[in-house]
Design a protein around this nucleic acid. Structure first.
Lengths: 198, 198, 198, 198
DNA sequence: TATGAATGAGGTTTCATTCAT
DNA sequence: TATGAATGAAACCTCATTCAT
């Protein structure tokens, strides 16, 4: 076997990084980048302030790691069980379910990713992963256009509207305006499909 | 009467407040609340740092004023020429146009309002105005539900999705993924209507 | 008159900068660059820690300012009443007196300048002034060589030895090994002349 | 007997201490005491950071050890082949050669020792060794005075000037102002003798 | 009333030292 | 015994706020 068992030290380090990332994600999501102090992250992660700087160059490096970690997870969720060769409505359903599951199982990551203005601190690697996440969705959009199942608009615009509608629902729930039940989510999916379907 | 013509001093003061609000809106929109330094706001507004504190208690008070100012403007735009007694599709069209016009004519305010997490610093007055803005939209939603023109879902959810779809479009444009032409906006309106129409 | 009287604010600022420079010179001379904390400088200067950063970009900028200020003063002292066309022994005497006067009247600056390893933080402007200080001494050395009054060695080496001998005396005094009286200084001058004279 | 042949473990420990001292000397010489981080010393010495604390109480203890080690070496060099009963010029020549050899063969130690302001961290043992190093030079000075071969000044002052002249030469070389050849060093010795000789 | 220099609390980051392995 | 990850005190620096002018 190539993956021999890691030493206890390596385990501890991985655990520590994981705890730092989790704490940072939660605090950045709640208060934004500038509103979060590094020692607060350390405290919530249960480590010393200096420890964070053993694993991350600086605060920007940390937030980029958080961003990449969350996007990577989103990418995994979105790509689950998708079949680009099958029925488009079915594919859309798949993506919708995957997105719902991601938002439900990772509300903090979802909130963090929906924060505006990551741009000022994202490095190139982070910008690349952003594109990787969008790629399969974009592929679906393009195929749907080609097959004539969706409206005659830029695929990117249609995708942006669906994504936005979903985010709008989630935001309204967070703000307490609505409660998003399973049933509402199901209806919302059909609504979105009708929004884009020809 | 209280509204006799203002003295030159009052005019100067109003001008100063206006410049401070404009500068603050732009900077908060660009860098967020915590990422913006009060002296920077003063510099961009062309006033001394201390002057800001003559008109606003502190930084939080300033951001609340910016929030209220932007929301008030949005409220004005949205309420223009709306007729709740007429055709629902027509009313929807009206709201859509008003929203488009607001976003086009006030991109900075629009961006500021779409920033997440105003919550941590909003005071009660600011939260109230938020509801005032939503009221007419909510009224439209409720009426449309009653008349059976829209889908059988919580009106708030439908409104949230439409709003979200519009925001999604705008965001995709800002991020450079699409260009939102007049034509696309018109199609998007019809798309959104199909999303919610029964 | 071109130099109208400065406002009280300008006076206060100049006074503040002077006090910061004085405090920084003393502390850097005593404990070195890395051994001196900026807030300590502020405290000794009687200003807030932040004030230093209004006048100096950062700690490095401060130490460069200290260096330049001290070197500039040394340059003024050294160039007083020197006559390059007269007798070389007389010129040497003049330089020696000037140097003695500088060290006596500005012991802290002298000590600061004799610290080793300014190099790591000196910027170009600071390196330039270093050369300006050496220029007249170097000129004396070269002339003395040409006229055949001093030994047949590189003028720079002779100058370095004289300078070093003087510094050695001062250092021995600081360390408590000797007391350098006026008389000793006079003898030392003659000794140094004999060291270099042909 | 205590000095039986050392075990391999003892050898390893001595080697480790030697490497730590060498690394510390180089880094302290280059960046000063406060500018040098203990983990950097460890890295350059090829040992773990904690290891340094097994052999030295703390950073101050380490720099004292470096100081003593360098001074001890200097003492060895200086005392080589000196004959206090012989000719003074000959003795002076001997000391000069020894000093030159030390500086040439141990440039780092020489640089370290010439750093100003060791005082703040030197302990008593270190101060004592300083005196041990000066003792033979001082003895030469006193004898030369008694025999009337040198000028009628405090011997300490004469020694300080010679030492300073030599240091001045070395410093000018380090700063790039001159190149100190064997020939220059020989002339410099004669110059120094003329400086102090009656 | 308006200014912006001054302040010092608090932010990011480093590093001497410890201690589990 | 040797390691180096972990710590937290303390460094440098920023910025919300005040106040003399």
């Amino acid at each position: 076997m190539s993956s021999t068992k890691p030493t206890r030290r390596e385990e501890a380090a991985q655990d520590k990084v994981a705890r730092i990332l989790a704490a940072a994600t939660a605090l950045f999501a709640e208060r934004g980048f500038h509103g979060t102090a590094v020692p607060e992250v350390a405290k919530q992660a249960g480590v010393g302030a200096g420890t964070i700087y053993r694993y991350f160059e600086n605060k920007e490096d940390l937030v980029n790691a958080v961003f990449r970690h969350a996007k990577q997870k989103l990418k995994l969720y979105l790509s689950e069980d998708v079949d680009f060769d099958g029925d488009m409505r079915e594919l859309f359903h798949r993506f919708w379910l995957n997105l719902v599951r991601f938002a439900e199982e990772n509300p903090i990551e979802f909130h963090f990713l929906e924060l505006q203005d990551h741009a000022p601190y994202l490095d190139e690697e982070s910008r690349n992963i952003e594109l990787e996440v969008l790629a399969p969705i974009w592929l679906m959009g393009v195929q749907a256009r080609q097959r004539g199942v969706v409206k005659d608009m830029p695929a990117e615009a249609l995708m942006a509207m669906v994504w936005g509608a979903f985010v709008g629902l989630m935001k309204a729930q967070v703000l307490g305006y609505i409660t998003v039940s399973k049933e509402v989510l199901g209806q919302a999916e059909e609504n979105c499909w009708q929004m884009i379907a020809r």
